[in-house]
Nucleic acid binder design. Structure first.
Lengths: 200, 200
DNA sequence: CGTCCATTTTACCGATTGGTCAAATCAGCG
DNA sequence: CGCTGATTTGACCAATCGGTAAAATGGACG
């Protein structure tokens, strides 16, 4: 009795439309009519698949969290410290470039004070970050990483990678329009290389 | 025939209330009733002082731009390159710490695609940034600054400083609660010092 | 005090919003 | 085909939204 083909197709269309609209206008700025139009369904038909506007939003955010936390999980404690962290930076950059709407959806939620995911943040996310911070501290103590504040370094990685997706308009306004976004990744990589490379 | 005392007092109260509400809920998320309540006025009384909800928002954004662009204007081309840039970073950090609501107001606007200030961004802001980038390139050519991409370095400064104000909830969720925000400034300063310090 | 203009309030409006409900339609299946 | 449950639609609703009109109030000044 799982989802029928039509069920899963429409649910997917609604989530796709919701992502598009929510990421562009925020939760309050988005309307069910907009989402319905984007999904090619009528408004009451939307509400046949999701109980409420908030349900669509919640489903999107929860589904997003796993994808968003994945790059940090793939850091290998056995690997070469600098290479592992730069690979993490690279994965995060790729993520924001591939999923800018997801990034803005997340940014909107945090900006409003994270009313829907505050618990996930202080539980799941904090656990992951603390573990990585401990790992980094161990690397620092072993002289394999420059002495930096682990927590703030992780925050810096988020700040830089997310900025290119979330503040896209500002970035484009300031860069020459023909300036490719590739330079962004090169620059961010260089930045963290200089910060993290241990000096003997 | 300038503003009477009561005029300027109420206009100020409305802008203060608008800043509080807009920065917390975004433009569409904020309501005139909320702003009126926060300002201690009735809704029609609000509209006696400002023609519309958008007028309040526009006034706030325009008034903010000057303050926000000030730190970049105070960079001295005659000064010592690294010291000048680190002082700029420090001023920006102080700004976001002192005016987090203004920072979030700005962030909300950019996230929605900067519908109200797109022209200011691509004109005034771009001019300032291009000038600073030229200055930095000259410093780099003179060997007084490490070879970095000037534009992306400026963007990095914004990304890091704004992040602490705009993503405050996430930052607090991840840091130990007794961890003072001072460490943020120390970390960011260290980061840009390592990035920008020329190596002979 | 009375006048005049600035200020404030009360009552209201049309549009939009998220959401409901019952009827209509459709798809699969014997 | 004819039945049955899943899906879709049109009509509608109460609440909230930004904003208006006009009357009421307040304050400064002669």
């Amino acid at each position: 009795m799982a989802d029928s083909r039509i069920q899963s197709r429409n649910r997917a269309a609604i989530l796709e439309a919701g992502l598009e609209i929510f990421s562009r206008h925020g939760f309050r700025g988005a309307t069910l009519d907009q989402i319905a139009a984007e999904a090619g369904l009528s408004k009451p038909n939307l509400l046949y698949y999701f109980a409420s506007k908030e349900a669509i939003h919640r489903t999107l955010l929860l589904g997003l969290m796993d994808t968003w936390l994945d790059p940090i999980r793939r850091i290998d404690p056995q690997g070469e410290p600098l290479a592992e962290l730069l690979a993490y930076v690279s994965r995060k950059m790729a993520l924001t470039r591939q999923y800018p709407r997801e990034s803005r959806l997340f940014a909107n939620e945090i900006l409003q004070g994270a009313p829907h995911i505050a618990d996930t943040l202080s539980a799941e996310l904090k656990t992951l970050v603390d573990a990585l911070a401990d790992q980094m501290q161990a690397w620092i103590d072993a002289g394999r990483l420059a002495p930096v504040d682990p927590h703030h370094t992780i925050i810096s990685i988020w700040a830089l990678t997310q900025h290119y997706a979330d503040f896209d308009v500002q970035v484009r306004a300031v860069l020459d329009s023909d300036d490719p976004l590739d330079r962004a990744e090169a620059h961010v990589t260089q930045l963290f290389q200089r910060l993290l490379q241990p000096v003997d």
